[in-house]
Design a protein around this nucleic acid. Structure first.
Lengths: 154, 154
DNA sequence: TGCAGTGCGGCATGAGTATGCATTATATGT
DNA sequence: ACATATAATGCATACTCATGCCGCACTGCA
């Protein structure tokens, strides 16, 4: 019964939103009172589907709906995404400006951040442009060289 | 060593912010590589202190920093929000790059703007990174010093 | 009507986390 | 410096959650 699953998950969302639920067993009891009889296993899967997490609060662990409906951006390595998204690159002083295809900046910036290069202090991304702050001009040259070659499609 | 606890929790914050961590055991291994040797118990407590939760994502369960007060934090002074959101800071020339937990950059940037320091020409914030343009290198040093101490959690 | 395909959900159990208790380190008062 | 109060942490274990496997219900199709 697909309908019952949907309704149950809906009930779960309402419960989580309206009270403090600390465990799946507690949630199970609450659902029981409303006529839903399920096992902890099912709740574990429901909570996964609904992206509901158990977060530490002042009053202990509580289930809450994870924000942002979950993060975006595939966690692919730079080498995998850059050839697809790279447009061009330029630099001056400690700075590099990297252009990507429209909407690609955040993805590339995250990939860059994940590499945690000491040459790069940080990145700031808009929609299709990334500003990278490098530790020095030498660092900038190294980074620019590497990104250029990575960005060059295979 | 009280200091070590603070530093360790800071390291955890950075790790969580920059990689996908699926379990406390995995986190323990990562910390080991950086010279921190602790048990899972301690990590459980650290994660509680830092309000880091394990949320379901497309790629499985991952630890993420739970969002702080949100609206509430929006008007709080820098000294109140920075300890919660600060990850690390670095600077070069006239620039400071401040890393925050995911989604924290806008909040911190607003707080910075509200302080209207003449040392800072302006700020640009992405999702988890803020670029601050300072009036001079001396100004940069002053600001960096202050932010570092504010960011150091109590 | 019979059969393959798909999804849901229980059961059992392993994976993963939280915590009471005891110990050791650190801070505070005299 | 010594004694006492507090905080930090490890250990062992109870608690809680995630998941492989299996059966059942339903669907589409020949």
């Amino acid at each position: 019964m697909t309908v019952s699953k949907r309704e149950r998950q809906h009930a779960i969302l309402e419960l989580i939103a309206s009270r403090e639920v600390a465990s799946q067993e507690e949630l199970r009891q609450l659902l029981l009172k409303r006529g839903w009889e399920v096992t902890q296993s099912t709740l574990s899967r429901d909570l996964r589907d609904l992206r509901i997490a158990r977060v530490p609060t002042d009053r202990g662990l509580r289930y809450v709906v994870a924000e942002g409906g979950g993060e975006e951006a595939a966690r692919a390595p730079l080498s995998a995404i850059l050839p697809q998204l790279f447009v061009r690159l330029d630099g001056v002083s400690h700075l590099i400006v990297l252009k990507t295809v429209s909407g690609g900046a955040q993805t590339v910036a995250h990939a860059l951040d994940r590499e945690a290069s000491s040459d790069i202090l940080g990145t700031i991304a808009g929609d299709d442009t990334i500003l990278m702050i490098c530790r020095s001009e030498q660092a900038r040259e190294r980074v620019a060289k590497r990104l250029s070659s990575l960005g060059r499609r295979p």
